[in-house]
């Protein structure tokens, strides 16, 4: 799920001023536009691709709607109108009334279906993010400092290994080892901390891989830069070199990949929740997908994209604080 690409802030971020109100407003505006575009894109995917699921779904015998209920929902979504008109109505409902639509399953508002899942998923994603960040840090520093013979070489293969393990498989292995064999928790009744920790670790392992990968190569790169040589020739020790010179420089690309990885965190939480039977947004998405409940799916996925965009916006805005080259004193 995790993809590793060269992290690069968009040029707009690299040239911008750090405390420049116009820049901040422009970035926020871009993010809002992106949210709308995400919604439109998802709408296009579910409506334009062959096999328009909504009307087919409504007449499915298992839902057992009355003719009136079907007509009401058809009228609500204006399914008789052309696709672009439908999109217009959907956007109008969303933007003017904050209405995300009605679930096809119970006719309930989408928001009430989704709302229940959010806290639990945020909890999982948050815990998992912390674990992934710690894991990535420990692996990277170990890989960078330990000589090959003392495990540095092995640590360097961890990101690639983690990247090769499907989320659901990690979850099953963890259940097998810690619940079935060691008996540390019971899959049927577990609660409290252990109900959070095991899924969070499951999710954290593949997510930590790209972070560690970028962090290690950024540390290696910083070490070969001429400024490191100059710093060493002042006579400073390796710890000072790490803290003052390598970390501040390696932090920049690492931060970028960390923000990008949030998407994998949210995508992976769906699978993790399914494996551990943990209710949350992922379960909502899974149910909606299985039932082809398109409005719920659309809203839930848009929501994750919003979270992604918000976090990347925040990173964009703190980037100039970490890198003086991105600051433009007062000009502009």
């Amino acid at each position: 799920m995790a993809t590793v690409a060269i992290p690069r802030r968009p040029r707009s971020a690299r040239l911008a001023g750090s405390y420049n109100a116009r820049y901040v407003i422009a970035r926020i505006g871009q993010a809002v536009l992106a949210v709308v575009l995400v919604y439109v894109l998802i709408f296009i995917i579910v409506t334009v691709l062959p096999g328009n699921p909504v009307s087919a779904r409504l007449r499915s015998p298992e839902l057992n709607y009355t003719e009136k209920q079907i007509n009401d929902l058809l009228a609500y979504y204006r399914l008789d109108r052309p696709v672009w008109a439908q999109l217009g109505y959907a956007l109008e409902r969303l933007i003017l009334h904050g209405d995300w639509g009605l679930s096809l399953d119970a006719g309930r508002p989408v928001t009430s279906v989704i709302r229940g899942g959010i806290p639990s998923t945020l909890e999982l994603a948050g815990a998992s993010f912390v674990i992934a960040a710690l894991l990535a840090f420990v692996i990277s520093i170990g890989a960078f400092y330990l000589p090959a013979k003392l495990g540095g070489g092995v640590l360097r293969t961890f990101p690639s290994l983690f990247l090769s393990m499907p989320n659901f498989l990690i979850g099953l292995v963890i259940i097998d080892v810690f619940s079935f064999n060691l008996g540390w928790f019971k899959i049927t009744t577990y609660d409290g901390l252990s109900a959070l920790i095991y899924p969070a670790v499951t999710l954290a392992i593949p997510v930590s891989a790209p972070i560690a990968q970028i962090f290690i190569s950024a540390l290696d790169a910083a070490r070969t830069e001429q400024y490191s040589t100059v710093a060493i020739s002042k006579g400073i020790g390796r710890f000072t070199l790490l803290v003052r010179h390598l970390l501040p420089n390696a932090a920049l690309p690492t931060l970028t990949i960390t923000a990008i990885i949030v998407g994998d965190l949210l995508g992976g939480s769906m699978i993790t929740e399914a494996v551990f039977g943990r209710p949350g947004l992922g379960t909502v998405i899974e149910t909606a997908a299985t039932d082809q409940d398109v409005p719920v799916l659309q809203a839930a996925v848009t929501l994750t994209a919003v979270l992604f965009l918000v976090i990347n916006l925040i990173v964009d805005l703190i980037y100039p604080l970490l890198d003086p080259r991105l600051r433009r004193a007062t000009a502009r």
């Binding site: 400024y227 040589t229 710093a231 003052r244 501040p248 420089n249 890198d323 003086p324």
Partner: peptide, 10 residues
């Protein structure tokens, strides 16, 4: 190369 020889973020 002086332009690459000082830590850019300090």
């Amino acid at each position: 190369d002086p332009t690459a020889s000082l830590n850019p973020v300090r």
